[in-house]
Design a protein around this nucleic acid. Structure first.
Length: 414
RNA sequence: GUGGCUGUAGCUCAGUCGGUUAGAGCACCAGAUUGUGGAUCUGGGGGUCGUGGGUUCAAUCCCCAUCAGCCACCCCA
């Protein structure tokens, strides 16, 4: 502490960045609303158990990335590392599962104890959507289409690539997992240390290893396609067909996997090459088993989460704040009358920046810096005539207007 | 968590082969212009040279530690 700096991996969102984040969130929220996904907000911390249960004791997130602490009542609390667990918990707590399907949008901070890097922080922000109670592949298609449309409206769709894979149903996965464990087990000694570790924890990840020695072994490993049940294959085909119908392009990526057991069928990621190693900008999939793991009724679910920082970084400059009118009083009498006038105009819905200090020149400079559309000069002379000088700061033209007409004149600038 | 690179003004960066008061551009403030901005000119403020320790007559520079950022891995948004 003591140092005047934020804790590692956290950042202030200064106005320009805050605006960038808001732009991402508001676009996402607006698009989601068009799909009838309504905003839900859950606490940023939960009982640790909520995440342990849903993410699995052995997952990386739970085993090394959680911000957990004991509160004064002795309960173990964890700052949420992701959004789905909290939403599903809320659905159960609130008894909402009786009214399926549910369509939710959320946005907010998430926390993960990781080594920071560009596009990877300890406190970061996500937007996400969840669709609960829809077992049909059209649900997966809707979720992906929603994500794609958000990216499109942010102007980022062309900078990303949609990668798609199926994890099959539990039968397919169990069968494939057995085959992989058998196969890699025979080659255990030849695998990299990382992959030997993965063999015990999450054998699917070995397929995706960056170790050159591993890739030879991976090349002739059993293929998931040979273990897919007919039902799972049909489901995936339906998702692909649905995306085709919408003209949403995707790439099949057999190595795209999910660490957690409750994931099934569709897994997808929108990725980019613009962000270094942090290529994933939006990731999601189907999690039919999740609700049950939490002790609820079996309820299908699909959803995704996207990193706001990553999206904001990609979208570059964001729209500036609205241009104000600069109200500039000159002289004591005018200063006294300026605040009530500003108050009046603001109540009428007009954006007004009141120049509090400095001489006229100084205040004009400030007006210019705030990108003011026009300056309202309130001077002694004009006040005697119940008027003000209205100067268009783009053209430099200025006219005297009666204070009674001011509001109407300002409206013409829109 | 592992390995590596970096850290000088609000920002982007010079610089000192260790040696008096550490520089530039942009930004900021003031004046030229005491009722008129954007351009220009002039002047000004602002730095414990990330922090702590060590070596030295002397450290922003060399050494160690630490903090932070970045890069790769791990993993992910």
């Amino acid at each position: 502490m003591a140092k005047l700096q934020p804790v590692r991996g956290t950042h202030d969102l200064l106005p320009a960045q805050a605006r960038g984040h808001r732009h991402v969130v508001e676009t996402a929220r607006a698009v989601a609303a068009r799909y009838c996904y309504d905003t839900i907000d859950t606490p940023i911390f939960e009982f640790t158990e909520v995440f342990k249960r849903t993410l699995g004791e052995t997952s990386d997130v739970v085993s090394k990335e959680m911000y957990s602490f004991e509160d004064k009542g002795g309960d173990s609390i964890t700052l949420r590392p992701e959004g789905t667990a909290g939403v599903v918990r809320a659905v159960m707590s609130g008894g909402l599962a009786q009214d399926l399907p549910l369509k939710y949008f959320y946005a907010g901070p998430m926390f993960r104890y990781e080594r920071p890097q560009k596009g990877r922080q300890r406190q970061f922000h996500q937007v996400g959507v969840e669709l609960l109670g829809v077992p049909e592949p059209s649900g997966d298609v809707e979720i992906i289409a929603l994500g794609a449309q958000i990216l499109e409206e942010l102007g980022l769709l062309t900078d990303t690539k949609l990668e798609l894979n199926t994890l099959g149903d539990s039968e397919s996965r169990a069968s494939y997992r057995r085959a992989l464990v058998d196969y890699f087990g025979e080659h255990r000694a030849e695998l990299s240390a990382d992959s030997q570790h993965r063999l015990d924890r999450n054998p699917l990840r070995i397929l995706d290893s960056k170790d050159p020695g591993d890739s030879e072994i991976v090349a002739v490993a059993p293929r998931f396609a040979d273990h897919l049940t007919v039902e799972a294959a049909d489901f995936f085909a339906a998702v692909c067909a649905g995306l085709d119908d919408l003209g949403i392009a995707y790439t099949l990526t057999p190595t795209l996997v999910r660490g957690l057991d409750y994931y099934c069928h569709t897994a997808f990621e929108f990725t980019t090459t613009a962000l270094g190693a942090q290529g994933t900008v939006m990731a999601g999939g189907r999690y039919d088993g999740l609700m049950e793991i939490m002790g609820g009724p079996p309820t299908p679910g699909v959803g995704w989460a996207a990193g706001i920082e990553r999206l904001a970084m990609m979208s570059g400059d964001t729209p500036p704040p609205p241009r104000p009118f600069a109200l500039i009083p000159v002289g004591e009498d005018a200063v006294r009358r300026a605040t009530p006038l500003a108050h009046h105009l603001r109540r009428a819905g007009i954006t007004v920046d009141l120049a509090h200090r400095g001489n006229l020149s100084r205040r004009m400079k400030r007006a210019n810096k705030t990108r003011a559309r026009a300056a309202i000069l309130l001077g002694e002379d004009e006040l005697q005539r119940n008027a003000a000088t209205l100067r268009d700061l783009d053209s430099g033209d200025q006219v005297e207007v009666s204070l009674d007409d001011l509001e109407a004149r300002l409206a013409q600038f829109r």
